[in-house]
Write a protein that binds this DNA or RNA. Structure first.
Lengths: 355, 355
DNA sequence: TTGTAAGCGTTATCAT
DNA sequence: ATGATAACGCTTACAA
């Protein structure tokens, strides 16, 4: 008996006050109480006051689960990213959370860890949990997008961001990847470098092809030839550090090694910096570097790094605003917004000029 | 008519298959179907097979909201941290998510942005949303813990991590902060530094006093006096960068400036590195630095930084495991675990030895 | 072995 | 202006 009691106490959440309790306390029906709480016109002012006071006194809080069941919406949105502990994505999540918080939505996070299978499960899990919509940035392994388009065609609002999926007609928000890498490459060219390598994410990712195109275009526009030996893809884009190390090793042991590298993602830039440090390579004397990075990383390197800053926080905010408009049907289903945010090219005085 | 139809299509989520649909399809009652799905002993094998097949065919997924309403648990846990886009916390969240995922729980994130008011609202929001438990690391502004102890005494399972609250008797997981900063300080002393300053988080945080104690103890154990001019607190612990810059400026303009600094949090270490770079201070010739940091940051500085690594991922995992045990009543309510994780002290050959 | 009915907390549709 | 009832999807006594 005692043991049982203790167990119950332990398990039991605080018995929340319900509309029933208020009804009982006031000798009213639940429907009256419900209406009074929602400030319905059909309830007399006195009753309203009574109910409101009682609710206040009992510290009544509507049960969101019951509401969800009734209204078939949970006021929560799901997010699928490769890794939370990646500063680019954590900044995006920060933006997502800020908008969601303002609008009274919960944010449910899940990670694909760059695994296609995991992404499928995550999405399935989120949708079965009844989220009102999802924000997705596809994993590096993902080349089949049916799991996304299936949900989409079932009416689940979806906004794709950063790493998007071809052929799914929905809202998307991306960085102007072409521009970012074009500027990075051209900056190196303008500083006198001709042998410029590119370190890219997996070729399957939308960001990769766009950024690579910018790199090639910048070379071409400056009468430089594209050397395929200078282009390295890291399939797991930095999640596996050894991939980056290996790619850079290969570059540096070419008969004709590059004098400079553009790193086409935040994670790759970080990995390249780490590799340089481990190998004792000095920037810019041994090798020059410009690439996508966040300010923190760029600023603490020596010399401070000229870099492409991606507006991650803004991207998270924009994606969430779009998603909530979709969810709340504030936007016709036929107009899909394809937004492109401009990256910032930040030149550090100290960085990469040839000595 | 048409407009209405479109609107409905737009708003409507895919009509999910329910137990009722299966029952109807098979000419059974919902209870039979329910029991068959739960593999109850009272259902005949044939019926079970029939139901299971039908469920499979219709792609039936149990509605978690309905389950939540019935069982009064949501299989979701809430997390309150100061900032997601702080690598220490994003690594912790990674750990949290990994355990939660394995156990079929959702993780709902919210940020306090180091604001006490926001922390109160976050916690209120999470609990009203019916999370089964919460993981909390208090904000730097928080010095009153009633919002936490209130929820706790109402029976909501709570695990505090990293920045804990005094006087709340629940599970806690922290780093051995004393040890971490003791080792950092002593390492500098062993390398010949005597004038060692400490850059600390807000004095109200549990981590701050513990780390400061380690610093002082290390000085004392090596016959060095504590100089209060050498101890600087940054109230917002790095969320406001100018605070760090200002603190370091003050240190460097003392009549007798320090030769070395221990930075007592990841964020402070990052901020100090940024400040050094901006001021053109070289490590270790102008100023030596040892502190709490993650490996990425420590490895890309020049020279690579000797540092205290906090097992953030492990902390997130451990906290979540404890919380889930509490939630699932696998652990008596009277035994509160106070776990202390050891930090790793990582010495880089290149770092901080006097030239 | 299977069906009926009540209940989780709320709101909407009828009555009254 | 207020109350009774059904419904959202599911589980579980209790009947049959």
């Amino acid at each position: 008996m005692n043991a049982e009691f203790e167990n119950v106490c332990h398990t039991m959440k605080f018995e929340a006050v319900t509309i029933k309790d208020i009804a009982k306390a006031l000798g009213l029906s639940t429907s009256t109480v419900s209406r009074a709480l929602r400030d319905s016109y059909e309830i007399s002012p006195e009753t309203k006051k009574l109910v409101l006071e009682c609710a206040e006194k009992l510290n009544y809080r509507p049960n969101p689960v019951a509401l969800s069941l009734k209204e078939r919406k949970t006021r929560s949105i799901g997010v699928v990213v490769c890794e939370i502990a990646n500063s680019f994505f954590s900044q995006i999540i920060n933006g997502i959370e800020s908008v969601a918080y303002d609008r009274g939505y919960n944010v449910i996070i899940s990670q694909s860890h760059e695994s296609y299978d995991r992404e499928v499960v995550d999405l399935q899990f989120l949708s079965s949990r009844g989220v009102d919509g999802v924000l997705v940035s596809v994993s590096t392994e993902t080349s089949d997008y049916e799991h996304i388009s299936n949900l989409h065609s079932k009416g689940l609002p979806i906004v794709l961001f950063d790493r998007i999926a071809p052929g799914i007609n929905t809202h998307t928000i991306i960085i102007d990847n072409f521009k970012g890498s074009y500027e990075a490459t051209e900056h190196l060219i303008h500083n006198g470098y001709k042998k410029i390598a590119a370190l890219c994410p997996s070729e399957f990712l939308s960001i990769s092809s766009e950024r690579l195109a910018g790199y090639k275009e910048a070379l071409g526009a400056n009468d430089l030839k594209v050397n395929n030996d200078y282009i390295k893809h890291c399939f797991y884009g930095g999640m596996v550090f050894s991939e980056i190390e290996e790619a850079i090793n290969q570059l540096m042991t070419l008969k004709d090694p590059p004098e400079a590298i553009v790193t086409l993602s935040d994670k790759l830039t970080l990995g390249a910096l780490k590799t340089f440090k481990r190998r004792g390579l000095k920037i810019p004397d041994d090798i020059a570097l410009v690439g996508f990075s966040n300010a923190d990383i760029a600023e603490i390197t020596d010399p401070a790094l000229t870099f492409v800053r991606q507006p991650a926080f803004e991207m998270g905010k924009a994606a969430t605003e779009l998603l909530l408009q979709l969810i709340e049907s504030k936007r016709p289903v036929t107009e899909f917004e394809k937004r492109i945010l401009s990256p910032e090219f930040i030149v550090m005085e100290s960085g990469n000029s040839r000595s």
